[in-house]
Design a binder for these strands. Structure first.
Lengths: 336, 336
DNA sequence: CTGTTAGCGCTTTCAA
DNA sequence: TTGAAAGCGCTAACAG
């Protein structure tokens, strides 16, 4: 048994020599080709073991179109919602045998462009992106001009039609408002209005349509910010007005939890005196007191679906564009 | 302006031809070599722009030792703690210009081995691993036999000395117990004892040593499981005993939150009737009611440190092994 | 300062 | 069923 000196890696040629065959034959063994005789295959396999051979995909990629890598570009990895999404992508990848680069744009379009560029240099087979707030179309247009398979998640860039995974927010909000109405609430306010991306707009318009449809009078929405704060003063004014709300549906769980805390400061108990419903079902929602009723937006499932969609696109680049819509689940707990 | 047909990517040779120079010169421009004349550089740069050239690192990597990629193998990406850690790694990588593969072992040593194998095939420059429970030494021995730079985080494999980032749990627990004693608690129980990995053992022994050192009588620990459950029946028996505990320090925040919920069921209010302290400071801790006092284990900082350590190891493979210990922070809220 | 040449480790015709 | 030869896109060593 000979081992190459200096940690230099053993190549297919080494294996071939060791097994007494040509490089081409060894290559066929590598890829389980039926063309090679069982005995030869065995010899080669043994040589690989003996030398501790590691397949060099980098080299193989030079000759093939696919690299078996994809890129996942998120607007904020630290957010538990996105980590669940990542887990979903990872799960699908583990099944398909590809491996995933992760990148964090931190809501910066510049950083996002840099990351995507870097991923392209690494020859990823495709990209899953949750676009940073303020992303412009040009980058994405370039991506599909180049024919790089690409799936958008959650947020849609305007004037764009491509593979896309999103959540049927309207359905979730409809379920939530139905529940509120059934439990006697009549004045539901929406907290966390912001016009930053399609998901935020979809949530608000889901509320508006549900109100119309359930015969509830919509109230003016309370503004929110992209870092999950909301206009507490405006909320206070509304609570002190002559016709205060009796319940709230919030842009996300983080805002909902803040609202509950604020209500407590005002001596109101969420669930009894005022109903609060969040969105996303982050781990903190189940741990809060009272536990937060919320609309679960199924991040793991979103990630899994996006990875599958990307795989399909990579396999057939010209297939028609597909939009997958994940059904949310209404999670009834104690805050509403 | 000519564009290659069929989405075939433009190579450095195309650029060189377009600019009227040789491939080698173009390559130098690519890497900002001072050897090339300003005018030539400009010509080449323009040609790159014109053709929409994308640097192919895969090809470059065939000639160089480094690929500018690292692998991050975690035991559970969906856990918010690890997503914060990932964000830290990403941050360091963004600075150093490398890019990060992410893999999830899901606490399965087999899956972990498969993922690491896959990453090696992609020629990663190094690996950051939080070993799955039950990992055996062989895989890791092989990794450093091959001289693949490698940093362990949080959990230590027995009989091993290599680059390692961990948290000074003992110091955090000491601060927590000091606080409990100062606020009049005398009987502190440890909840979540499990002998699964070094971090779990370090947390329990931190409790034992702090008790000794602060003159508190240690109580028999309540058992926990790796999926963050604990032996509630045993806890009940202890509460009903003749000498019940007046406070608890828990293996992690998840267990601590469950303990608070259980106390409430028994009519006890955390913070007033019984003190509860968690560990890690996950987002849910701040959102709980009462808000959870905890020992923040700084996951982002851990990830950042690990990435830096790995970078140093990659740069100088023979440097002496380094262990970095992150200082935790005691976060005083309302549960204790 | 720029060009020539020789590979990196693999896959892929094509021929034997 | 196996082998020889060419080449993927780049960098490194050397010569000019």
């Amino acid at each position: 048994m000979k081992i190459k000196a200096g940690g230099a890696s053993v190549s297919l040629l080494d294996v071939a020599r060791e097994a007494g065959v040509s490089r081409a034959t060894a290559s066929l063994v590598l890829r389980d080709s039926p063309l090679v005789a069982a005995a030869t295959r065995e010899k080669v396999r043994e040589a690989m073991m003996r030398l501790g051979y590691i397949y060099n995909r980098g080299a193989a990629n030079l000759r093939q179109k696919r690299t078996g890598t994809i890129g996942l570009v998120l607007s904020n990895i630290a957010n538990p919602f996105f980590s669940a999404l990542t887990a979903g992508v990872e799960q699908a990848n583990d099944l398909s045998g590809s491996v995933c680069f992760i990148a964090n744009s931190g809501e910066s379009p510049e950083r996002q462009a840099r990351q995507i560029q870097r991923l392209r240099e690494h020859n990823v087979d495709g990209l899953i992106v949750c676009p940073a707030i303020g992303s412009d179309n040009r980058l994405f247009e370039e991506i599909d001009r180049l024919g790089l398979p690409f799936v958008q998640v959650l947020r849609e860039i305007p004037d764009t039609t491509r593979d896309y995974v999103t959540v049927d927010y309207a359905a979730g909000i409809d379920a939530a408002l139905s529940h509120l109405r059934a439990s006697g609430r009549k004045r539901v306010v929406y907290i966390g209005d912001m016009d930053v991306h399609s998901a935020a707009r979809a949530r608000l318009s889901g509320y508006e349509r549900a109100c119309a449809h359930l015969n509830l009078t919509p109230m003016p929405a309370i503004a929110g910010t992209r870092d999950s704060q909301y206009d507490e003063a405006a909320f206070d004014r509304l609570l002190d007005s002559t016709s205060p709300p009796d319940s709230a549906i919030c842009y996300n769980d983080i805002i909902a939890l803040a609202v509950m805390t604020h209500l407590r400061r005002r001596g109101l108990e969420a669930g009894r005196d005022f109903s609060v419903i969040g969105m996303d079902d982050i781990p903190a929602a189940g741990a809060a007191y009272p536990t937060l009723t919320t609309i679960a937006t199924m991040p793991t499932r979103i990630g899994f679906a996006a990875a599958r969609l990307l795989e399909k696109r990579i396999a057939r680049p010209t297939r028609r564009v597909e939009q997958e819509v994940i059904a949310p689940e209404f999670v009834l707990r104690h805050s509403a």
